[in-house]
Design a protein around this nucleic acid. Structure first.
Length: 205
DNA sequence: TAGGCCATCTGGTCCT
DNA sequence: AGGACCAGATGGCCTA
């Protein structure tokens, strides 16, 4: 995957110009949507290449924020967890925690911040899951890491853009890339052999 | 066993 | 003031 890196700085201006045509409201809406993303609802709707069929390998990714709240560890962050709390009935448990919390306002704030941070990271991870469903993967390929997902997405978008600009048939364009290697307009060599190989799996209609 | 990847906690900074 | 965002630290899990 490392070989898919290319000189992004050189193309940054052009790339931003390209994406600048996108409605910013659409981008923000997409971000909002990603926050509420539920993998289960999009199974089979996204990547035709994903070997996982868009099913998250992380069951947690399908939790709602409400679920997360109810599952969050209630004891104060940084404090020793009283194991007896875990065995107590919910009512007594929460009552004692409230009493404890009232004595440590800072820790209560810190705990609330931890929960918010976990929610935030969960939403980011959901967005990564969705992105994984949109990038080409081999059927036998293991789940992409976050950094690999980002790099592959960047290369994939760039290649799709090149195909659009060229006006060529996508399949023949990819075949050409496979044969001759891939160069962008600034002649910087993009070693995207992995990407073009992935794209060769696509059944172009 | 080392290295990669990840989740979580935490404190700092910025923004509303 | 409180929330969002960020980056560093830490520890767990997995794989070569």
């Amino acid at each position: 995957m490392e070989d898919m890196l290319f000189d992004f700085d050189q193309d940054a201006a052009a790339d931003f110009a390209f994406w600048g045509q996108m409605d910013p409201n659409f981008q923000f809406q997409s971000q909002l949507d990603s926050l509420l993303f539920d993998c289960g609802t999009v199974v089979g709707q996204l990547s035709p290449w994903s070997s996982f069929g868009c099913q998250s390998v992380f069951p947690d990714a399908q939790l709602t924020f409400t679920d997360l709240d109810s599952q969050s560890p209630q004891p104060e962050a940084g404090a020793e967890v009283d194991s007896s709390l875990l065995d107590e009935p919910q009512e007594i448990n929460t009552h004692r925690q409230r009493r404890l919390a009232s004595h440590h306002p800072y820790k209560v704030q810190r705990h609330a911040a931890n929960i918010r941070e976990r929610k935030r990271m969960l939403s980011i991870n959901s967005a990564f899951e969705e992105l994984r469903c949109h990038v080409p993967t081999f059927p036998y390929e293991k789940r992409l890491s976050k950094i690999d997902t980002l790099r592959l997405a960047i290369a994939y978008i760039a290649l799709l853009r090149e195909i659009l600009i060229s006006g060529c048939d996508p399949k023949s364009y990819v075949d050409e890339c496979m044969k001759n290697g891939y160069k962008n307009q600034t002649n910087a060599i993009w070693n995207t052999s992995d990407l073009t190989a992935r794209l060769s799996w696509i059944k172009w209609d």
